Amino acid sequence: MTEQELRKRLEALKIEHRDLDAAIEALSEAGRQTGFVDQLQQQRLKKRKLKLKDQIAAIEDYLLPDIIA
């Protein structure tokens, strides 16, 4: 992948990560209102969010290598 493609992929991952954050919050809020929290769905969303975070970190590390001067 080119650097430009990696940057586009990084932005898409960040957007998906934010969307998952909002979905998890909405699910939690709905659970507080109804008294029922779909823990399995919430767990799946959190797991996906963690995978995205790892992918984001990997791309950022590749694009911005840690240079020790």
Rank of each mutant, 00 (worst) to 15 (best):
L64I: 09
S28W: 14
Q42D: 11
I68V: 12
K51Q: 15
L6R: 09
F36T: 12
K14T: 05
R48L: 07
D38Q: 10
A22G: 02
I15M: 08
L52Q: 06
Y62I: 05
L13Q: 02
L63N: 06
K46C: 09
E25K: 15
L6C: 05
Q42R: 14
P65A: 07
P65N: 10
A30P: 00
D61A: 10
K8W: 10
G35E: 10
R44G: 01
Q42G: 08
L6I: 04
G31N: 05
D38V: 03
L50S: 14
E3R: 13
L64G: 06
E60C: 05
E60T: 05
L13P: 00
L6T: 04
R9Y: 05
S28I: 14
E60G: 03
G31Y: 03
T34M: 11
A57R: 03
D61H: 09
R7G: 00
E16L: 08
G31H: 04
E60A: 02
E16M: 04
A22R: 10
P65E: 11
K49C: 03
Y62A: 11
K51I: 10
Q42P: 01
G31W: 02
L50G: 11
E29L: 15
R7F: 01
H17E: 07
R48M: 02
L27G: 04
E60S: 02
L6S: 07
R44N: 04
D21K: 13
I24K: 02
Q55S: 11
Q41D: 11
A22D: 07
D61P: 00
G35L: 09
E16C: 02
L52W: 01
Q33C: 04
L10E: 04
D19A: 08
E29N: 14
L40I: 13
K47V: 09
F36M: 12
K49F: 01
I68L: 14
P65R: 09
T2H: 07
A57G: 00
L20Q: 01
I24P: 00
P65V: 06
E11S: 09
D54F: 03
P65L: 09
A12E: 13
A58T: 06
